[in-house]
Write a protein that binds this DNA or RNA. Structure first.
Lengths: 144, 144
DNA sequence: CCGAACTATATAGCTGCGCTATGCAAAATC
DNA sequence: GATTTTGCATAGCGCAGCTATATAGTTCGG
């Protein structure tokens, strides 16, 4: 079972290197926390700041600040929560969806040359693993 | 080929979420740049600060600072370069190897419960992908 | 060999992330 | 309806990582 440990380690380190390669290649230094947050909003729909902080795995005040910055750029919008006057629902805007897509596109394009020699089987394995990870790290799973 | 783009995006986002889960779970907030650096030193042996900065994909002054911090904790040591008095070779110490291993172990252990239901086939796919990524994002590959 | 250009690292100073501690206002509880 | 609890905001700190620049060693033309 130690192979699992090595595998996870390797996956994580490689992914972080990919991120840095893309960040340098595109000159886009947007923080991972920002696009993690946008991606959560797309996948799981509008939610409160507190939920968003837990889902994106940052402290609540950190998420407050992220949301403020995103709102200033119209990438998200705040919707009053009719049930609780203290709370807001945070929703991604079309502009926000574009911003995330553009960023992800840049990452993938920066990485693409490194993977030009992958076979169809390789890509199939990559897709399978991406799917496994998504299922097991989704917001609902991790809530436990 | 757009599937490749989606796949890479998904892998990267999942990996970053795993990292945050581990950081919160263990309370170990060590910067990704630090263990990326240590992992490069283990895989590729001693190298200069400039090379290390390029390999870890940070600016040179950033690496200077990282190396200073790591040296203060005896996780790396500086070796004078006999060929060039301006340069140093940076080598990881046994203590540094332990530190990296401990950190990676914590990450994997934090993640393990999420993956307890994976089949042997799933793990085989994970290993295959980890291997693919390592081969394509190694320091020598990326030098281009 | 001597000075100019180049190179390897270090320093200075900035911006912004993410944290803890705390404040404040709305719910919930009794 | 006063107390406790909850959800978010603010304050303020520490540090990562950046650009610009300084410093010291190397290389190369003459």
């Amino acid at each position: 079972m130690n192979e699992s440990v090595d595998t996870l380690q390797s996956l994580i380190i490689s992914a972080h290197r990919l991120t840095r390669i893309a960040a340098q290649h595109t000159g886009n230094g947007t923080s991972p926390a920002v696009w993690r947050t946008l991606s959560i909003l797309i996948n799981d729909g509008p939610m409160r700041i507190g939920e968003l902080a837990a889902a994106s795995r940052v402290a609540q005040p950190t998420m407050t600040k992220i949301v403020q910055n995103l709102a200033a750029e119209d990438l998200i919008r705040r919707i009053a929560d009719v049930d609780d006057a203290r709370a807001w629902l945070i929703a991604i805007t079309p502009k926000g969806q574009n911003a995330l897509n553009t960023w992800l596109q840049q990452v993938a394009e920066s990485a693409a040359p490194l993977f030009s020699d992958l076979t169809a089987d390789d890509w199939a394995a990559m897709r399978a693993v991406a799917s496994i990870l998504e299922r097991h790290i989704s917001v609902s799973e991790v809530a436990a």
